[in-house]
Nucleic acid binder design. Structure first.
Lengths: 335, 335
DNA sequence: TTTATTTACGAAACCGTTTTCGTAATAGTA
DNA sequence: TACTATTACGAAAACGGTTTCGTAAATAAA
């Protein structure tokens, strides 16, 4: 109850609060003896300095924000660990915000972050987000931003992502080489960078192997499991059904498996399946699924590290750094 | 750059900062005309009040902390969504901390949270945590705590968890009724409440069916995937190998599947497997795995809601409320 | 008309730190 | 001895809101 603050300590020690503050920070201005006395009492009373008073005065919050669509995907789960590990090492706190794929919410959150609450922000944009105005607005306010995984095209922001284009290409090529001729691409957004990059890679492979491009093979899914299931089922039930499927995100792999099960389609005999995912259970699915596996932890780590680099202004102009960490194609029984 | 604060507004409007502050908060003391002028300029300059100045004065942070072992498990991923959804509705911010199952880290984090940074804390304790001293210390400091999922025995803290004892019992009973006589229980800690509750349920079923208790069937795993794999493999390779396995956490199911695959043990013919998990891919594993599925989102929601109830002191004495949300046994091909 | 009340605002304290600046006392130098 | 430098600390001003209290002016009541 007797919330001990710096004044309490000062009074009990017969010192001024300034002196106590300096002693606690091990300032050269204070004698060793006094420091000892101050430290001892602080320990005894379990003194914990008020974080906000300190932040207010120093204009530094020692806090970063993490703005995510959701924690549904195991990608983000793992990325959080990477980010948190770096932040903890640096003695920073992490605020987490979920946009639920909603642009208005994302905008509102970023606007709120102009309040001095955080020193920097990590963002993986919502599916709905098309332009970076709200992000630049935050930067203009003096809050550095690093985008990770889901970045935006043509921004002058620091970014960490993976080689989505290349992986879309490699995965599609793999499916083609395994005999697929009609490969469906399961998207989750028309304007999400990673999904489009992967799609462009897909298209490149299709072109390269001179397969007929088919708009019906581009299936746009969304956040509704019901809709996705229906859309995939419709495609796989058609007489001209695909013989290969490339899922742009993890949960669409699972939906695809469920649909195949329902339709009694054999994987990989009737249809081959690959997808972007880091599911730990990928290898024990029935059958084990071929994945393009992103270095989620490392992406999180790199994004956080880059943000701290900007905060510490070590390098010149790291505000526009783009880091690309490669993913790996892991071939399993489904293709 | 020209960081607009309340003084900037006041100066431009020819008002005192107190008046501006009150106008922005729609105080009855201020005339409608003045409020309009203030609001208009605030909008124009995109004024965002400094969060920490406000928190410092009001002694309210509008922030809660979420202290977790890790975000590896899909349980916590989903729980975060539940917690965040409630916090967002209440206009609260969420700080996330990972203990990495380390007690010392958990203690340090909770100690730091005495700094006034948060109004309340949600904790799911680390595997190593045995006693609640660090938690009561925080409470004594005036910071309410709600434990969720991984709670501590004999605490006077508010808690939200699931019916672990009952589920351990039901799952074990299910395995017995499917013909198992030697059921191994895969633990991850000697002192974690949920793991022990589940174990007690397991023991009750074993007793009830008069199966011979066998210490070799209690396998203690840890955070090392290698160790766990080896331990399970050793057990399943022994001549007296178990014919049923109950995994206390999600990742041990996956490890078990991998071991069975490596040993060419058929599930469920040679060994039946069940586990506590909300893996979305549970139904499409090979074979689909029987799970005890926790209401993770709801537990998160309930925990956050309970914390806010305490913060708002609506009820009398919600500080000791215990909420139990039931899990469900979902029987699939593995048993 | 006088008094009481309400309205609308300003002055200033306050939240708990940090930091600048000033200054006694002591130590060192010429 | 006189002067400079250093040491060790205190006073007070920040940081940017919020809140209490006081008060002039306008309005209402007597």
């Amino acid at each position: 109850m007797p919330k001990t603050n710096i004044r309490t300590l000062a009074k009990q020690l017969g010192l001024s609060q300034g002196t106590v503050s300096k002693a606690l920070k091990d300032s050269y201005e204070i004698s060793a003896a006094t420091k000892e006395r101050v430290m001892a009492l602080a320990r005894k009373l379990n003194y914990v300095p008020n974080a906000y008073a300190s932040s207010l005065r120093k204009q530094k919050s020692k806090t970063i924000a993490l703005v995510l669509p959701e924690v549904a995907d195991s990608f983000f789960s793992v990325a959080i660990n990477g980010i948190e590990s770096v932040a903890q090492k640096k003695g920073y706190h992490v605020l987490i915000y979920l946009t639920h794929e909603n642009f208005a919410k994302e905008k509102a959150i970023l606007n709120e972050l102009k309040s001095g609450r955080v020193d920097g922000v990590l963002v993986s944009v919502a599916r709905e987000t098309k332009h970076p105005n709200h992000i630049s607005a935050l930067q203009t306010n003096g809050v550095p931003v690093v985008l990770f995984d889901r970045v935006l095209a043509d921004t002058i922001t620091a970014e960490v992502c993976t080689n989505d284009f290349e992986c879309g290409y490699i995965a599609t090529k793999h499916l083609i080489e395994r005999g697929c001729r009609k490969i469906a691409y399961l998207s989750i957004s028309k304007n999400l960078s990673i999904v489009n990059e992967r799609l462009e890679g897909y298209k490149k492979a299709i072109r390269e192997y001179e397969l007929p491009p088919d708009k019906d093979l581009l299936i746009t899914c969304n956040n509704s499991e019901g809709h996705n299931h229906a859309a995939i089922k419709k495609s796989l039930s058609s007489k001209n059904r695909p013989d290969g499927i490339l899922a742009s995100v993890e949960k669409l792999i699972i939906t695809t498996y469920h649909v195949c099960k329902a339709l009694h389609l054999e994987i990989p005999a009737n249809v081959k399946v690959a997808g972007f995912s880091i599911l730990p259970s990928a290898a024990i699915l029935s059958p084990p699924v071929t994945t393009i596996s992103q270095p989620a932890f490392e992406i999180g780590e790199a994004a956080a590290a880059l943000l701290f680099k900007i905060l510490e202004k070590k390098d010149h102009g790291p505000e526009n750094t783009k880091i690309i960490l490669p993913s790996a194609l892991i071939i399993r029984g489904s293709t």
